[in-house]
Design a protein around this nucleic acid. Structure first.
Lengths: 101, 101
DNA sequence: GCAAACCAGTTTGTAATGCAAACCGCAGAA
DNA sequence: TTCTGCGGTTTGCATTACAAACTGGTTTGC
C-alpha cells in the first residue's frame, strides 16, 4: 500500500499545476491551438497563459510558432511528442493513485 | 468538454500538493497515526512533515494531539470530518477530470 | 494626419510556497 | 557534568503563480 501512495510525490510538478494540466489537456485533444483559443478554453489571463506556455516550451512539452493572421500576430501552440508522453505518464500516475487509495 | 477540463483549476490547492495528498490519504486509511509513522509512510523529512501538518491543522483538516508515550513526546494526528470530506471531494474532482479527458 | 483605443501577447512585482538545514528541549548514557 | 540521541519546530532561501503594468503594432474616430 505504502509504495503506491508515496509514488504520488514523484509526479511531474510541471504538469501537476492545474492551469498547466488544463493547457496540456486541451492541446492533447486538439493538436494545435492559437493563443486566444487556449486562453478562452483554459479560462486564464493572457499573462498567466503566456508564462505557463513559456515554461512548457522550455521543458520541451509544447512548440510555439509565432506567425501572422493578416497583420495581426498569431501564436500557435502544439504538443510535442515529449509533451504527449509526459501527459500520458502523468495521467496514468494520477489514475493509479486515485484507484489504489 | 471545456467546463469539465477547466474545473480542475478549482481543486483544493492545499490537497493538491503531493506531499499533503499523501499525508491525507494515509490518515484517511488509518484514522490515527503518530508523527514518526506518518513520516516513514509518507517518506518525508521531519521538517517538511511538521510544516505540512501545521497547514493541514490550520485549515481544519487534521487534529493534532500532543501527548507522551512514557516520557517521550508523541504527536498523534487524525483527519477531521472536514478533512475527510475535503479529501473525498478532491478525489472525486480528480477522478472526474481523468475520466473526461 | 494624428491621437485614442484596441489587440495579442510579454514582463514585472510581490506574496506565498516547498524544501533542506539548522535549531531546540528533553531524556538517558558515560 | 557533558555528550548523544530522540521528536519534532523554526529558519533561510530559491522557486512559484498570479495580477497588474507594459510593449509593439494596428485600427478607429475626427
Amino acid at each position: 500500500m505504502g509504495e503506491e501512495i508515496r509514488s504520488l510525490t514523484e509526479v511531474d510538478r510541471l504538469l501537476h499545476e492545474p492551469s498547466r494540466t488544463v493547457i496540456i489537456a486541451i492541446l492533447y485533444a486538439v493538436e494545435s491551438a492559437d493563443f486566444l483559443y487556449l486562453q478562452r478554453e483554459a479560462g486564464l489571463t493572457k499573462g498567466n497563459l503566456s508564462a505557463h506556455l513559456s515554461k512548457l516550451e522550455e521543458a520541451g512539452y509544447v512548440e510555439i510558432e509565432k506567425t501572422y493572421r493578416g497583420k495581426i500576430p498569431l501564436t500557435l501552440c502544439r504538443l510535442t511528442e515529449a509533451g504527449r508522453k509526459a501527459f500520458e505518464d502523468y495521467r496514468r500516475q494520477i489514475k493509479n493513485f486515485i484507484e489504489k487509495v
